[in-house]
């Protein structure tokens, strides 16, 4: 494990991140601070910009996309998204990525071993062959793949979905990164396999002190796995809330509406689920004022004018050491009934 950074220094700090594809701004000023060993969730529905944030942080936006604003700092050093060589040095060593679909995230014609080794060699070019091999086996063991020596020689098609995701996690933690960005890491997996993989991520956070940014559409998953949750809508973080108060105490009308649409265990059967009328606005033609206002049950005329204020819903308690700030970007955040 790398030298433990001082607790005051965040592993990842993002201020006002903006991303555009052509003329359309798809991420419109996102702030995010992750401390070492912390697990932060980013949730939202398709098209809200959550996956774009993940790729933008890695500097791996698809062709046509670019970071148009904001400052990103990893372990205290500022990231320059125009310096490709510096980005290459950062990727995999300080920031690493676990990607959505384990079936398509591994090169089908290279052995598992060579794909893990690639990550090691890139950042430790002088490592001997034997050392690389030994380390690869060690990594596979660490992510819970049995018989690592044999498994290293195998190819992705010889691995099950859950095992592939474990191998990808091994790739991601190979160089002890400060932050692991996991973009829908369990969405393609069965629920029992998902439970195993989440358990593995949890143990890696405990063991390595790596910080995790979990990007997902699954509110149940973030609220269980993460310490803090950021809810995104139309390219903005509309609410930032500690997980333990998410279900009882969400303040933004969008978050509340999302939660009410969930068939959570224990909700009386026969009771109809609520849903949000309409559809998210196209990012190329956002409504004036709050983007959610046209669908919001709490909207007032002034919601369609000007940027909604960021309201502090509850100050962090002393015990939480400043990690549990709860804010919502809504004029009426304190009026929406909670709990």
């Amino acid at each position: 494990m790398s030298a433990a950074p001082s607790p005051a220094l965040p592993a990842l700090s993002v201020e006002g991140l903006r991303v555009a594809y052509g003329d359309v701004e798809v991420v419109r000023g996102v702030d995010l601070v992750v401390r070492p060993g912390e697990k932060v969730g980013v949730v939202g529905e398709s098209g809200c910009g959550k996956s774009t944030v993940a790729l933008a942080l890695m500097g791996l936006l698809a062709a046509g996309g670019s970071v148009t604003g904001g400052a990103v700092t990893v372990s205290g050093s500022r990231v320059d998204y125009h310096d490709e060589r510096a980005l290459d040095r950062m990727r995999g060593s300080q920031l690493s990525l676990v990607f959505q679909d384990p079936l398509t995230s591994l090169d089908p014609v290279k052995s598992i071993g060579s794909q893990i080794a690639e990550a090691l060699r890139r950042h430790s070019p002088r490592m001997s062959r034997a050392a690389v091999r030994a380390r690869c086996a060690e990594l596979l063991t660490a992510v819970g793949v049995p018989e690592p020596e044999r498994r290293l020689r195998q190819y992705p098609h010889e691995f099950s979905g859950g095992m592939r995701q474990r191998a990808l996690i091994a790739v991601a933690v190979a160089n002890d990164p400060a932050v692991l960005i996991a973009d829908e890491p369990t969405t393609a997996l069965d629920v029992t396999t998902q439970a195993q993989v989440v358990d593995l991520l949890d143990s890696l956070v405990d063991g390595l002190g790596v910080a995790v940014v979990l990007v997902t559409h699954d509110i149940g998953l973030v609220s269980e796995f993460c310490d803090r949750v950021l809810v995104m809508y139309a390219g903005r973080v509309v609410e930032e809330v500690p997980s333990d108060v998410l279900f009882g105490g969400a303040a933004h009308p969008y978050t509340r509406a999302l939660l009410e649409s969930l068939p959570v265990p224990g909700r009386p059967r026969g009771e109809d689920l609520a849903w949000i009328p309409g559809a998210p606005p196209p990012l190329s033609a956002l409504p004036p004022g709050c983007s959610f206002a046209p669908r919001c049950a709490w909207a007032q005329p002034e919601c369609s004018v000007g940027t909604p204020p960021r309201v502090v819903v509850s100050e962090p308690s002393v015990a939480a050491l400043g990690t549990a700030l709860h804010t919502a970007e809504c004029r009426r955040a304190l009026e929406v009934p909670r709990g």
């Binding site: 060589r85 995999g92 990525l97 398509t104 014609v109 190979a174």
Partner: peptide
Amino acid sequence: RAPFVTVVRSKGVSRWAAHRRHVLHNALL
């Protein structure tokens, strides 16, 4: 366009090396 190319890049492999080692190899088969 395959996701695994993004994963290879996320290891810190340069675009050219990723293209040569992974894209070209898979395209040749």
